[in-house]
Amino acid sequence: TIHNPFFNIGLTDLTAHVNFTDIARAGTESGLDLIGYLPQSYFLLNLGITDLLAQIGSPDSVEYIQAAAAVQKLIHQHEMGELFKVIAFGKDIDIDWTGFS
């Protein structure tokens, strides 16, 4: 068990299983608006991660290939894309919620 989340930053897995139904209920019962709940893949795609990838450079460059592999891990359904979720709450906040569109 890790008690200090700053122990071995970047090397320690802090993944936890979360009951998003209970979190959504607690948030809304506390007066917050549920802005959205999505798998990480949809959230990142809605925010334009593939457009950012295209800005890396030539698709045959080492930088692009490395970035594409990282994006693949973040959005693929058998990797982090479906396993990780994104939830947001707000109250009287007027901002662009594009990630949840």
Rank of each mutant, 00 (worst) to 15 (best):
I9A: 04
L11E: 12
D94M: 14
A54K: 11
G81W: 11
I75E: 01
E79D: 12
E63I: 08
P59A: 03
K73P: 09
L45D: 08
S58T: 04
T28K: 00
Q77A: 15
S58C: 07
H17F: 14
Y37T: 01
H3D: 12
I65D: 01
T1G: 06
T50L: 11
L11P: 01
L44A: 05
D51G: 12
A88C: 12
Y64L: 05
N19L: 10
E82L: 05
A88E: 14
M80N: 04
I49C: 03
G27A: 12
T1V: 13
K73R: 14
G31A: 13
H17G: 05
I35L: 01
V71P: 02
N8D: 08
E63L: 07
G81H: 08
S61A: 02
T15I: 14
D92H: 10
L44R: 05
A67E: 12
R25F: 04
T1A: 08
V62D: 03
T1L: 05
F7K: 12
K73Q: 07
G10A: 00
D33F: 08
G27P: 04
A16K: 13
A68H: 01
Y42P: 07
G81R: 15
T28F: 03
V71E: 02
L34V: 00
D92P: 02
S58E: 12
T98Y: 15
V18F: 13
N8I: 01
I9V: 15
L53G: 09
P59Q: 09
H3V: 11
D22V: 08
K85H: 13
G27L: 15
L11K: 07
S30E: 11
S30V: 08
T15V: 15
I2C: 00
Y64F: 04
S58R: 02
D13N: 12
K85L: 04
D22E: 13
I87Q: 13
K91L: 10
G10T: 02
N46Q: 08
G90K: 13
G10Y: 06
I65V: 05
R25N: 04
L14A: 07
F7Q: 06
F89L: 06
L14H: 06
K91H: 14
Y37R: 00
I93L: 15
H17A: 07
D51T: 12
N46M: 03
G36C: 01
N4P: 09
K73W: 05
P39M: 13
D96L: 09
V18D: 15
A68G: 04
I35T: 01
Y42V: 11
G90T: 05
R25M: 06
V86C: 07
E82Q: 09
D92I: 02
F43G: 14
G27V: 07
K85F: 07
G36Q: 01
L34F: 03
L32M: 03
S61F: 09
G90E: 08
D92T: 04
G57P: 02
D51R: 11
K91E: 07
S101P: 14
T21M: 05
I23N: 09
D33L: 03
S41A: 10
N46K: 03
E63P: 05
G36S: 01
T98W: 13
I9S: 03
A67P: 05
G36P: 00
S58K: 11
D60A: 09
H76Q: 15
Q77L: 15
L47R: 15
T98C: 15
K73D: 14
T21N: 10
